[in-house]
Amino acid sequence: MDLIQHGFLRGIAYGLLIITVVMTATAWGMWLERKIAAQMQNRMGPMFVGFHGLLQPVADMLKLLQKEDILPAGADDWLFNLAPILTALFAIATAAVVPWSAQIVASDLDVGLLWVLALGGIMVVPVWMAGWASNNKFALIGGMRAVAQSVSYGVPLVLTSMVAVVFTGTMSLSGIVQFQMAHGWLIYWPPGPGIIAFLLFYMALLAESNRIPFDIPEAESELVAGISTEYTGMKFGMFYVAEYVHTMVGSAIAALIFLGGWDGPFHWLPGLHWMVAKTVILFVSVYWVRWTLLRFRSDQLMRLCWLYLVPMSLALLVFAAVWVTYFAA
């Protein structure tokens, strides 16, 4: 009894900590992205709120909170209101199992990777809820595209993660890292398939978190704002935050399962530094791609996924199985 209560309280404390840390990191992740984008475009970016616009995320949040909450005529109010909450919930819940170093982990699940992939996959439900409940044709088309894209790109995402699972023999995220600390990072050992699996995972990640060149569901030049067309104020903010959390956790997962997580070239620096550095580099690279490339058309996106990414990830998985069975022993 005592133990359960202890575990329950610990869960709440960790939960609050995760939400605080993730939301804070996300807010300044947005600031970072805006600054990087501005530098790429010969602009200054946010400059006026705080030193070099450092308080801009706070100002944005306050602005969103003050906005009028509009329920569009003919909208399904339950689904409409539930969708942003679920989206943000699922996005933040994925952060719970991310180990930031050997010690810093809220919940070191045995099936941590599965948990992340499952929550990423279920994100499609609230997105479709939003698209359907908005009673708006642009939102509906955006929702349909989002479902098609998430379901398709979920396949290579899972398959490439399974490559890591097959090599390491565990679904625990810290287990995967410990294996890499012993045998070398998966991106370069065994030679070849690791780097390809990483690149495929990265592309699928871009698609899963709706980033250019795969941001078809939003496609604001075509669909106004896609699923979030009818959302105002903090409900829109939740979609927005969820998108960034998704990208950040995705970057962390990629760093964990392919880049050795908190493993670094020298060990006198605590592992947390390496992990954060790798995550931030991947996070920034997502935005580098985003602010450079144009957007695919939805049918081209599907073709890319099913004709190239899925067969290649399947082949990698087979290779991994063969390698582990015959060579790794």
Binding site: Q41, E220, L294, R295
Partner: peptide, 18 residues
Amino acid sequence: FALDMGGALGGGSTVFMY
């Protein structure tokens, strides 16, 4: 034209700014 294709929050807007 790039904005139409790349979106206001993406590569299109970079071309647009240039």
